[in-house]
Amino acid sequence: MTTLEIRDLHVSVETDTEHKQILRGVDLTINSGETHAIMGPNGSGKSTLAYAVAGHPKYTVTSGTITLDGEDVLAMGVDERAKAGLFLAMQYPVEVPGVTVSNFLRTAKTSIDGEAPKLRTWVKDMKGAMEALRMDPAFAERNVNEGFSGGEKKRHEILQMELLQPKIAVLDETDSGLDVDALKVVAEGVNRVKEQTGLGVMLITHYTRILRYINPDHVHVFVAGKVAESGGPELADRLENEGYDRYVQAAAV
């Protein structure tokens, strides 16, 4: 049982000229096995929350805490957070020219586990995970994210999640840019990992459509840098019908 606890988190982003405050007191607790949907309009700070959890250097935590089973996440480097069991499926994964998917995955797995995976099981695991995500085996020999379609990039993110087996995963707009078929494949992947490992998920999304395939236990409406309202799955249905206008107007007052 793992708990990610975010308390009164304030985060600013560095631009050329200023520190711009984005998160203004986020409170959130995610336990193993739970799926929390974070929904909100563009610019509400959802991705900032994802990056702050992962430790992107561009974002500065000005106050508040993030802990994983009581351990201070903010004191950890980016790689240490991954080793502690956090994973961020990125909205815009970057290209790494000349580094093959297979080399990248093996290097990451070795780093996370502290030892190289046993060759035979590793090859089998990788093949199995790729098959499940309906990825061509040739994919493993392509360079990381180079020339990947939007769908391939997202599948590759989920593939990493399957193989690295984090405790808590943050999925940042994993549904964006996916057609229905790709969305189903990706959602199946997330559900499979949840079942197998008891993964806790922070599912960041603008639209409700991914929630048709991944059932959230909790839904949080995110507006102007903090959680405006929390509820169960029914909250997502309401957002589907009413949109975010009500919250945005309330925040503007």
Binding site: V78, R81, A82, M90, V99, T107, A108, S111, I112
Partner: peptide, 19 residues
């Protein structure tokens, strides 16, 4: 690139080496 690789648990030295 560095952030991406490190977010997968790869330390900075190895991430730079990979790149």
């Amino acid at each position: 690139q560095l952030f991406y690789l490190m977010s997968r648990g790869i330390d900075e030295t190895n991430a730079r080496r990979l790149v």
